[in-house]
Design a binder for these strands. Structure first.
Length: 483
RNA sequence: CGAGGUGUGGCUCAGUUUGGUAGAGCGCUACGUUCGGGACGUAGAAGCCGCAGGUUCGAAUCCUGUCACCUCGACCA
């Protein structure tokens, strides 16, 4: 049997000193991805993909509750189809990849590799929607899309990325708007409850909304380096697409009408968000709900009598409870090495069990996000672990992330205040009054380097003056540097 | 796509200024001793120095070209 264990892990770059390096380090060293020989694309490794699968499972459950069905559309879009909605094609044309040949023959009409699937869903709706009785249709698709990005970053921006895109069609504007809001709330709930990631709910400004949308709703999260991450978007399309694609239905009043549509999506970018919201200098910190392994059991001095047996007993007991648990009984690694390994990979709970514990009918339970270790009687072990995974850890991680966001959110009423706040406290969210004009939006960006992130739904409606032009307004919006 | 930077065993890098034929640490393989926070000893394997040309008796090192990656900007989930 192999017994050499002079195996060291590479240290992770300090997050405080060089955040960008820390990030690229961690996605590789925690074995989430590998860089691909296909430029700008990533190979998602089993550990990284398992996180995505957990996200998918939770979301599918939520989508079922809201009445959505999963479907699949083709990955190629004929150019003529993409061209139908003018704003949409203008927004996406600069970054689509084109298929021009089939085998050795040139195609009569080139095909774009889907950057998003609105147009395909529209074509489908045209075929199946004829009566108000056919509405609404509530669809979702899990797939990958391609956008030919110039600069790329694993999970945050790659040329091909995995996502879900929901597409719905409704009889009335009101129904569609309610759907847009409902799904934004689903996203917000998902982020806060399962990813322990606090988000700001709001709307994008006119200049920032999705190509072809009437309005774009969004959730924005603040990362550890003070940059903002758009974690999810939900769009209300009005009947613009329906008109462009000639989708009509006969309503109750026997008149032909255009239905109203929505779409909404989140991507593997969420994994980037998890890394940058919760990670620390020891590596990744995963929320229990999406962690591939929730509990790792490390036997100490496992060659001694009874240790492995006890470790396996604990394993079985947790397994029965439905916990994703594993025992690391590899003999070639020392316990200290294993501690570091699972810290790097962000496993939420570690249980240590050794001869001394067995003597005292106890074990050591360590929690990843705050580094705390506690001795727990084996009689209380199950309850303690369950409580940690379901309540204490998600809540603790959420509170910690929220505290960080509050610490890096600055209310400002002038350019000077903005620049001063950013300089003294580092990057973060800036809350500032805004009159609503695009001109002021641009000027803020020019003068301070931050751009509008979202117009939050939470407003106190107090009388204020626009941070740029000084006009009266009661609206405060969030600004920041974006990923 | 603009501006900078980096390419040397699996990883992190030294060596490049001043050309002389490949180094370190970690990892990897085998055996033994270990095991409560990244264990130790002994022995061993592994690199046509990103790629292509050129200069030279001789190139990781100098010249030209090219590709890839990273950071910062502009653009986007």
């Amino acid at each position: 049997m192999a017994q050499s264990n002079s195996k060291k892990l590479d240290a992770i770059t300090s997050m405080d000193e060089d955040f960008a390096k820390w990030y690229t380090d961690i996605v590789k060293k925690a074995e989430l991805i590998e860089y691909s020989s296909v430029k700008g694309c990533m190979v998602i490794r089993p550990y990284g993909y398992a996180i995505w699968e957990n996200i998918q499972n939770i979301m599918n459950t939520m989508f079922k509750e809201t009445g959505h069905e999963n479907v699949y559309m083709p990955m190629f879009i004929p150019e003529s189809l993409l061209q139908k909605e003018k704003d949409h094609v203008e927004g996406f044309a600069p970054e689509v990849a084109w298929v021009t040949h089939g085998g050795s023959e040139k195609l009569e009409e080139r095909l774009c590799v889907r950057p998003t699937s609105e147009t395909l869903f529209c074509e489908h709706y045209k075929n199946i929607v004829h009566s108000y009785r056919d509405l609404p249709k509530l669809y979702n698709q899990w797939c990958s899309v391609v956008r030919w990005e110039k600069t790329t970053r694993p999970f945050l921006r790659s040329r091909e990325f995995l996502w879900q895109e929901g597409h719905t069609i409704h009889a009335t504007a009101q129904d569609a708007i309610e759907e847009t809001e409902r799904m934004l709330n689903v996203y917000a709930l998902f982020c806060e409850k399962y990813l322990a990631m606090p988000v700001i709910k709001g709307m994008k400004t006119e200049s920032d909304k999705f190509a072809g949308a009437v309005s774009t709703y969004c959730i924005e999260a603040l990362m550890h380096d003070g940059k903002a991450l758009q974690a999810g978007t939900s769009h209300y399309f009005g009947d613009g697409f329906a008109k462009a694609f000639e989708i009509e239905f006969a309503d109750k009043d026997n008149k032909l009408k255009n239905p109203h549509q929505t779409s909404w999506g989140v991507s593997t970018r969420l994994i980037g968000g998890i890394i940058m919201t919760h990670g620390d200098n020891n590596g990744l910190v995963l929320p229990p709900a999406v962690a591939p392994t929730q509990v790792v059991i490390i036997p100490i001095a496992q060659h001694k009598e009874g240790v492995l047996e006890k470790a396996n007993e604990i394993y079985e007991a947790l397994k029965v409870l439905g916990v994703r648990v594993k025992v690391d009984d590899r003999n070639e690694f020392s316990p200290g090495w294993k501690f570091s390994e699972y810290e790097m990979k962000g496993v939420p709970v570690r249980i240590e069990i050794g001869p001394k514990d067995i003597e005292n009918n106890q074990c050591v339970i360590a929690t990843r996000y705050n580094g705390e270790k506690q001795f727990v009687s084996l009689d209380d072990m199950l309850d303690t672990v369950k409580d940690l995974l379901e309540n204490k850890i998600p809540q603790g991680m959420f509170d910690k992330a929220l505290e960080n966001r509050e610490k890096h959110t600055y209310y400002c009423e002038s350019f000077d205040e903005i620049n001063k706040a950013l300089e003294e406290n580092g990057d973060g969210f800036v809350r500032a009054p805004w009159c609503g004009s695009e001109e002021c939006e641009d000027k803020v960006k020019e003068a301070t380097g931050i751009s509008s992130r979202c117009i939050p739904f939470m407003q106190d409606k107090m009388a204020r003056k626009c941070v740029c032009c000084g006009k009266d307004t009661d609206k405060v919006i969030y600004w920041g540097k974006a990923y």
